[in-house]
């Protein structure tokens, strides 16, 4: 900000991944997707509140982004074939 703009410091924020920090540190339990069991129904991806389960097509097994997964375990609950297990981290 230059001196001439000091009268115009605006509360403007920019879209950033991890704006609230590495929210993965909030986790107590960690969901782990068991690849062999996964039927790629995408339920875990669909219901993730943190957009922390990633897929780019229906042909893939979803991946958990542990940097941001808060460990709510909704994915564990909604998986219809029990292809997600939970592991205690803390």
């Amino acid at each position: 900000m230059s001196k001439s703009e000091e009268h115009l410091l605006l509360p403007i924020s920019h879209p950033t991944k991890g704006a609230g920090g590495k929210t993965g540190t909030w986790r107590v339990f960690k969901p782990v997707i068991i690849e062999e069991k996964c039927i790629k129904c995408m339920m875990c991806w669909m219901y993730c509140p943190d957009a922390a389960i990633e897929v780019s097509s229906r042909q893939e097994v979803p991946r958990v982004n542990y940097d941001y997964c808060k460990g709510c375990l909704i994915c564990y609950e909604v998986c219809p074939v029990k292809a997600i297990r939970k592991e205690r981290e803390v």
């Binding site: 000091e6 115009l8 605006l10 509360p11 403007i12 879209p15």
Partner: peptide
């Protein structure tokens, strides 16, 4: 985004402007 939460030290700068 315009106007999401900011901390007191940043808020004071915005008000000063």
């Amino acid at each position: 985004a315009y106007g999401n939460i900011l901390f007191p030290w940043d808020y004071a700068k915005v008000r000063l402007s």
